[in-house]
């Protein structure tokens, strides 16, 4: 079976790059899964969980904002932020979220600041969601992933 040439980059770094079997990602119109030979597509990336599957291995990531370009067996993700699960510090994410929420409530913010803060809250929320979900699954024996 053919594989997908996958690449996810943020303005800061190349987060992940590999030949993969499938990827599930959140877009602004709902979650989609891209399998090899997917039709060329361009969409907006939403905040949430991104799952990469290579063989039996699953790599979860928290992403927020950006663009997805699906070409011929090639997926390029230009994300505003993307973190692999092992890189997420749950406490830090929680604090960052609280701080942003606090600022949003107390401070008089203009529209650009508001957008930035709301974006940050969304980002941290996505991180928290992903990290909590996958921490639980690692404590219990891994359930078999059905396709």
């Amino acid at each position: 079976m053919s594989k997908i040439n996958f690449k996810i980059v943020t303005p800061e770094r190349v987060v992940y790059e590999a030949e993969i079997d499938q990827v599930t990602l959140p877009t602004s119109s709902g979650e989609i899964t891209v399998l090899p030979n997917h039709i060329p597509l361009v969409s907006l990336l939403a905040a949430g969980e991104l799952l990469i599957k290579i063989g039996d291995k699953i790599i979860p990531m928290a992403v927020a904002g950006g663009f997805v370009q699906v070409g011929k067996n090639q997926v390029v993700i230009l994300a505003d932020s993307a973190d692999k699960i092992e890189e997420i510090d749950e406490k830090r994410a929680e604090e960052a979220k609280k701080r942003a929420e606090e600022l949003l409530k107390t401070k008089q913010v203009d529209s650009t600041e508001f957008a930035a803060l709301a974006g940050q809250i969304e980002r941290e929320l996505a991180k928290l969601k992903v990290v909590r979900k996958h921490r639980k699954t690692t404590l219990r024996p891994m359930p078999k992933v059905e396709e």
Partner: peptide, 12 residues
């Protein structure tokens, strides 16, 4: 090929 856009071409 041509791309399809989701949700809409304009929005993307």
């Amino acid at each position: 090929f041509e791309y399809i856009f989701e949700p809409t071409t304009d929005e993307v």
